[in-house]
């Protein structure tokens, strides 16, 4: 499936993500990591922490509705893989980010933005992993 090259909207969206990460640190002193938010919600500890994560998640989940109101359409989500691929891939992602201590947002944006060596290592490693598995899935297995 061919997708359109969108440098401007992608850069604009990225800048909004970078701004959100900066604001979360400036106001709440936290790293913006999707993994940390979900993992924290699954492990109720401090009530204020839990509510903060729930509010972040609620804001994220509200985003498609905001776009629907502003643009009149839902954001485009095209899924070119099978249901088993989503389920198996999703489980592998959850398993990996737990031990890796973060994902594209926590390591890829927040960690790299403060030049953490751990995050730079993690980012290079998970990017390499994704290149490898896409190559295997699409060009060797042909799924």
């Amino acid at each position: 499936m061919i997708t359109e090259f969108t440098p401007l909207t992608s850069a604009l969206g990225g800048m909004m993500v970078g701004l959100a990460a900066t604001l979360l640190m400036a106001l709440h002193g936290r790293i913006f990591g999707a993994t940390g938010i979900v993992a924290g919600l699954l492990r109720p500890g401090d009530r204020n922490d839990w509510l903060l994560r729930a509010a972040l998640l609620a804001g994220m989940v509200a985003a498609p509705t905001l776009l629907l109101v502003l643009t009149g359409q839902m954001p485009q989500i095209q899924v070119p893989v099978s249901t088993p691929a989503i389920l198996i891939g999703g489980t592998i992602v959850g398993f990996g980010v737990f031990f890796g201590g973060g994902c594209t947002s926590g390591h890829g944006i927040c960690g790299n933005a403060r030049f953490s060596r751990r995050s730079i290592t993690a980012t290079l490693t998970f990017m390499a992993g994704a290149f490898l598995s896409v190559y295997v899935m699409r060009h060797l297995i042909g799924a």
Partner: peptide, 19 residues
């Protein structure tokens, strides 16, 4: 850190979604 991130990347390439 390294094995977990590698695993995450492999799964990301299979499912197409990251968290």
């Amino acid at each position: 850190l390294v094995l977990g991130s590698l695993t995450f990347g492999l799964g990301w390439g299979v499912a197409g979604f990251c968290p």
